[in-house]
């Protein structure tokens, strides 16, 4: 086995919430609470979970847009939380991000050409003429046309704007792309175009993706491996085939069974969970899922489960498998 491209260990992000007249820290939001995973070169790791479980925070820490409270992030074997400025510059070129909202993430006053060119300027790549040529090449690559460079974002549809965001991310030839809900804002008929584009580009440039989404069908389609998050933690991570066909964690099971299947002849045996996702400021003691878990045992409210490796190499964090 070769070294993974990215290795994340025990990553945490706690947000202190100040309250009261003296501005003392009254509560802590555990947005990400000890997340570990690896990503191999050329593969796609999907991260799924419901709103607020810490998906974006995880992605943003890897981008170093947010400083982790604890933990380590290794990219190509280097600990990127403890490297020199010049080494970090190189990492910043190698790791790019695609955002959910194709409307908010593009500056409305910049032409599409200058939006795509910007990261090349930031990283000092090419001269003016070379950059312009690259912009045109990138536009064609994502299924737009060279003449689109002169236009502004508002002249494009949602799907086209997402293509512009992808072109911008590809501009500096990154190795790893973190895509945070890249198709969630798109119509179904346009979503599949963007998913196919991402897959084509991956093959072409041997790209590695971390694909964050809440749509489980989309994640299955695009990912080699999938991690399921609940309340700041990964509860299960494995290759996507076995995760979907034979989920181990009760939360994964419930999540999969809740997806409405677009086939009236297939009625899934729904596991309807009671209650809501708890606040990350007050995670339940023991296993964070125990108060909604249909198969909770005594131990679950007392002890936090740890990540265990199953015979087939899958990782699950649940007392059922103690």
């Amino acid at each position: 086995m070769s070294e993974p491209l990215l290795k994340v260990e025990n990553l945490k992000k706690y947000y202190p919430i100040k309250g009261g007249i003296f501005g003392k820290v009254s509560e802590t939001v555990r947005a990400v609470d000890g997340v570990s995973f690896t990503v191999n070169e050329g593969e796609t790791l999907g991260i799924v979970g419901e709103s607020g479980c810490g998906k974006s925070t995880t992605g943003r820490m890897i981008m170093r847009l947010i400083e982790p409270t604890e933990g380590s992030i290794q990219f190509e074997g280097k600990d990127i939380l403890n490297i020199s400025k010049s080494e970090m510059r190189k990492v910043r070129k190698d790791v790019q991000m695609i955002f959910q909202d194709p409307y908010a993430s593009l500056n409305p006053r910049q032409t599409v050409g200058s939006i795509i060119e910007e990261p090349m300027i930031v990283h000092g790549l090419g001269d003016r003429k070379e950059r312009r040529e690259r912009v045109e090449e990138l536009l064609e690559l994502v299924g737009l046309s060279a003449y689109h460079a002169k236009r502004y974002p508002h002249q494009f549809s949602g799907g086209q704007r997402q293509r512009i965001g992808i072109a911008r991310a590809l501009a500096v030839r990154p190795k790893l792309i973190i895509a945070d809900e890249p198709v969630s804002a798109l119509d179904v008929s346009v979503q599949s175009q963007v998913l196919n584009l991402l897959q084509d580009l991956q093959k072409k440039f041997n790209l590695t993706y971390i694909f964050i989404a809440h749509d489980l069908s989309v994640v299955r389609h695009i990912s080699n491996r999938v991690g399921v998050m609940y309340l700041g933690k990964i509860v299960e991570i494995s290759d996507s085939e076995s995760l979907y066909d034979n989920p181990k964690h009760p939360y994964t099971k419930a999540l999969l069974s809740a997806v409405p299947i677009p086939d009236p002849d297939k009625t899934a045996d729904r596991i309807i969970l009671s209650g809501d996702v708890p606040s990350p400021a007050h995670p339940p003691a023991g296993c964070a899922f125990h108060d909604r878990c249909p198969v909770a045992m005594d131990i679950c409210s007392k002890e936090k489960p740890v990540m265990k490796e199953m015979e087939d190499g899958r990782l699950v964090s649940c007392h059922l498998y103690d």
Partner: peptide, 15 residues
């Protein structure tokens, strides 16, 4: 166009 939860297609149909 919808990806399938139960099986993986090579490529999605697109409109």
């Amino acid at each position: 166009s919808i990806p399938d939860l139960y099986s993986k297609k090579e490529k999605l149909y697109t409109i």
